[in-house]
Design a protein around this nucleic acid. Structure first.
Lengths: 232, 232
DNA sequence: ATTACTATACTTGTATACAAGTATACGAAC
DNA sequence: GTTCGTATACTTGTATACAAGTATAGTAAT
């Protein structure tokens, strides 16, 4: 696991570092849904005091990744179908608007568009190479969406999408080994970006709409297999 | 202003109460953009210690309503045109999706739809009566949008919209006295809801799209008049 | 006068001490 | 055996003490 000295690296405050560390642990399921954790325990784990740990926990509670039970402890949030559905709706709405907007304003003469195109093409090439490595592929998938969202220049939107993806990614990590159809996902990514570069925002909406709904297929099976992780 | 004992009321923790109190002060401009505040000072104001004040401040910093300058103090965030633009985009995208979805699933036979209809009609009647009271009208306006958003049953989306509105409302409070065209806004609200109740999601999108862009008209004038409040 | 240095009085960041609420184990009463 | 009450060992909530960074005022050197 993560020990104390691992945190002492950067210029960030202990609170921020604890936040990132705990958040990552929750999303990648190293801290399993439903598990109880305690401020003292986490503080000891990271070799820091309760204060920065509390700060981290409060932020994660706002995100609904953990539940604070007053005077009783802190629980890693169960995976909630309701929350998944809601987060998917928000993410979909925002990515749809964002991608369409980027498509509408795409121009090969724009410097930023050209730079983006290079990065995306690099990313897509790596996606092809990572077909047999689900974890790497998942990160490249994330990076692809992020690259295009960044082109919009709306950090607020980007942060909301990333927050939603925190919840959605928990089930993707749950289904890591079952991550199949990677080839189809790459193809969709390529079709999506092609539509962007020819200013075809209608096609973008069409492709993206189908693309984002892929994940829900495995849900029933996952819910059965990892019943303890889900909200009753 | 708010004193200490005002906080001791409810079952909520001091941290939550401080968060609500400070947040409200920021949005209603009692704490003016650009002003420096200090944890000790706020703690003294509310008659509590620094700990719950810090908790509140961290949450507000995530929302970008305040800036924490390490070892220097805390600044009430300037009004940023960039942030306004970004927040408006996010809000618009989400309300558009939400309203359209509510319109598509509207049914007069549904119990929840009938209940909502009653509440909305009551709200619209009050909007008519509040034509000469901008502050009340603003709250009714908020309530109208909130009522319909709640019908979607997506708390996550609602919370994101409310967060965006925190930023957008600061300029509405700035322009309180100039809040004109209230009659037109009511009419738009009525047209909007009428479109919802006849399942006309296309009209909903059309009306809402124009409706949400109204606020930006006054911006240049406000920026000139309250230059200190804006980011340079 | 200007510059460079230093002391100082702030600030937030972090650790720790204390208050208060919750669940449980245990035992007495019945 | 069951129930009730109580002590106890936890937890988070809050207050305070201490550490460390920042800006500034003042002073000495030039």
């Amino acid at each position: 696991m993560t020990n104390l000295s691992e945190l002492k690296q950067t210029g960030k405050s202990l609170g921020e570092q604890a936040h990132e560390a705990i958040r990552d642990s929750v999303i990648t399921l190293r801290l399993v849904p439903g598990e109880m954790v305690y401020e003292n325990q986490l503080a000891a784990t990271y070799g820091i005091s309760r204060t920065p740990v509390r700060e981290a926990i409060r932020k994660l509670a706002v995100e609904e990744l953990i539940d604070v039970l007053p005077q009783r402890g802190t629980r890693i949030a169960h995976i909630s179908e309701r929350k998944l559905k809601d987060a998917a709706f928000v993410r979909s709405s925002l990515e749809m608007s964002a991608f369409r907007s980027v498509a509408k304003e795409w121009s090969e003469t724009s410097e930023s568009c050209r730079r983006l195109k290079q990065q995306v093409q690099l990313n897509l090439a790596e996606q092809h190479k990572a077909q047999n490595n689900p974890k790497v592929f998942l990160q490249l998938d994330e990076a692809f969406h992020r690259l295009i969202l960044q082109q919009l220049g709306n950090d607020t939107l980007l942060n909301v999408v990333l927050q939603m993806r925190g919840h959605l990614n928990r089930i993707r990590y749950l289904a890591l080994e079952q991550l199949h159809d990677m080839e189809r996902l790459v193809n969709e990514h390529e079709a999506l970006f092609a539509a962007v570069t020819r200013n075809d925002d209608i096609a973008v909406a069409q492709i993206l709409s189908g693309h984002l709904n892929k994940m829900h297929n495995d849900l029933p099976a996952l819910k059965q297999r990892f019943a303890d992780y889900f909200k009753p």
